[in-house]
Design a protein around this nucleic acid. Sequence first.
RNA 1: GCGUCCGUAGCUCAAUCAGGUAGAGCAUCCGGCUUUUAACCGGGCGGUUGUGGGUUCGAUUCCCACCGGGCGCACCA
Length: 500
Amino acid sequence: MSDSPTPSVPYRFDVDSNVAALQAAHGEIADGHETGQTATIAGRLMLKRDQGKIVFGVVQDSTGRIQIFAPAKTTPDFEGFAGLNLGDWIGVTGEVIKTRRGELSIRPSAWTLLAPTRRPFPDKWHGITDPDTKYRQRYVDLWVSPEANDALRNRSRILSLTRRWLEDRDFIEVETPMFHHVASGAMARPFATHHNALDIDLFLRIAPELYLKRLTVGGFERVFEIGRVFRNEGISTRHNPEFTMLELYWAYADYHDVMELVENLVSHLAMEICGTTTIAYGDRELDLSAPWRRATMIDLISEHTGLELSIDMNRDELASLARDQGVEVKDWYGPGKLILEIYEKTTESELWGPVFVTDYPKEVSPLSRDHRETPGLTERFEAIVAGRELCNAFSELVDPDEQLARFEEQEAERAAGEAEVMGMDRDYVRALEYGLPPTGGLGIGVDRLVMLLTDSSSIRDVVLFPTLRPEQGIEVGGSHLTDEADPEDDAGAEVAEEPT
RNA sequence: GCGUCCGUAGCUCAAUCAGGUAGAGCAUCCGGCUUUUAACCGGGCGGUUGUGGGUUCGAUUCCCACCGGGCGCACCA
């Protein structure tokens, strides 16, 4: 790090173009041609080739890279320009020309240092390879890793396109609480926190579902929320403790309607982002064009194992079939849970998709409406795309008594030893008592959708700042857990395990 | 959480297998070069080898613990 003081730099700078615009306007001119047109751009100096009486620089802005052709004879403060460091922010004004070797360039008639870098930039060829450094110092990674930059910018586009697509279909975006008194709407361990003034424990939401359906009760017929949810579980290439969920509720629709919505939305996004619905993911191909295959869970199990299962089968018979497939059977597993276990063990990992896996057992679907034809099943589906669950959706359970009974079954499972069950939410039941119309609901893991459309193998490649352990040897901010000075409790950045 | 692999200069990597005072390229600094393309050429600066212990005459290298990370499994979206 340089110990020289920061030189004075301007408070603002006017640009009148950017790299992409210059390339679009002048990219095709002949070698050696001078356009006679002047442009002002700004960005970081990423490469520099000092040739003595000519300096070639390469400036990168958010749209690309362009060469700066700086001869000693015409460049103001040529020595200063030659002395710039890689990574310095500069503004450049000059004529747009193409060099004899055919490189579109700006020949500066003026240039300004906008911000010096006091730390050396990573190797100009290799960039950053250490994943830890990439994620911790994303502000550098974004400059030196084009693939990271592209994926993260595409994330923004995907969110924007999704909002527009839904709004075009009369869905309105809402924001529901992130602090929940009961962590419900999904089966996951929550993060706990505490509100001092109210002196109550709160949970960061694990899903917005129950609040969104309250809004449907309230007459918001088409709503969606795109927001962060928090689950206190392991971290992996597919899991970040905070991740983004798209949830949507559509009054008067059922799960068939939602399937159509999903395949149309996803193929639209693929078209916009990838330019095609036949995309590459890893070393395989995937055809996202609608319609996607629909198949029931039980049929898919039959396809992959030859087992002809039914939700009506005797529990012990299913348990023994499950054991045959290597499922570790717990006492409280009923027929529905056993079928799900068999599906996950034998079939799910074999699917590539896209395919809608439909008609989940009621036992494992506490918020889904009973199947209109087959008792014991629900009108629920998940989409498997590129071998992974992309979404979870159903015809919503509308009956308050039934919902209360489902919650109570969950409580019973918790008592029996199941760690992750859905929490009881009595106010939600009360809302249902006012009447939830027939409603189709959907949850999409946005991070995984972005992974799919950007061909990313790790969720960390599509999250700007993934959750990491605190870095040692650098100050990352102290604890603010206590509102009063409490030297006993205020040790570093530790997070208390139990709210106080 | 368990298993496994990794951590050497600001960045990218050598040296570790078979222990003998840590090297290179880039960046940075100095000098040269009027059409370069990761420019090139010459020179300089830069390391308590993640941290702490142990074995040894001697540890980047072997052993232990801890810290951080990758991958796999488990859990999920």
